[in-house]
């Protein structure tokens, strides 16, 4: 389990570095998919199985659209890949930075509280994410309402920005 966890974390970090380093949207979104998958694995390992499932489904749907859009919109026929010098340089830079952060921050007690969530695993009958879910639906229903309103608003805002024939998505006419 720990091994899988570490692999997933490594993939996540390396993938994030690649997302940031890639200049072309094509590979950027591709690596984003990889990162999302790895993130879901991390969540599972932490015990959030339901959350991981939901997130994976959302990502699967959402990312596919993003991927499709980016590949469709990207005009360059020969996008930069990781093997190009500049891209590689930046990627190495980000990797180095995250390595330094890893070494530094594990020493300093900033991230000490992070195992709190892990420790909860041992107690209770339900999974912790399920517990949170129940809490959200029962006690603080208003929060859910607001959250829903927020999502709706986002949708409408995106629609408002993108609607119309002549003035496509955010592009200046």
């Amino acid at each position: 389990m720990t091994f899988i966890m570490y692999i997933a974390l490594l993939v996540m970090v390396v993938g994030l570095g690649a997302v940031v380093a890639h200049p072309s949207p094509y590979f950027g979104s591709l690596t984003l998919v990889v990162v999302s998958g790895a993130a879901c694995v991390v969540l599972i390992v932490y015990g959030g199985t339901f959350l991981a499932l939901v997130m994976f489904l959302v990502y699967l749907g959402g990312m596919l659209v993003v991927f499709a859009y980016t590949t469709a919109l990207a005009a360059d026929s020969f996008p930069y890949t990781l093997t190009y010098g500049d891209v590689m340089l930046y990627w190495t830079l980000y990797m180095g930075l995250s390595l330094i952060c890893y070494v530094k921050c594990t020493v300093v007690g900033v991230v000490e509280g992070w195992d709190l969530f892990e420790n909860w695993e041992e107690f209770g009958i339900f999974e912790s994410d399920v517990r949170g879910m129940a809490l959200m639906y029962s006690d603080v229903g208003s929060l859910l309402l607001i959250g829903g309103w927020m999502l709706l608003l986002t949708l409408i805002a995106v629609l408002e920005l993108c609607r119309g024939n002549s003035r496509g998505a955010l592009r200046a006419v």
């Binding site: 607001i146 309103w149 927020m150 608003l153 986002t154 409408i156 805002a157 408002e160 920005l161």
Partner: peptide, 8 residues
Amino acid sequence: INTMAIIP
């Protein structure tokens, strides 16, 4: 919500 509302 605020941000989302002001953007359009």
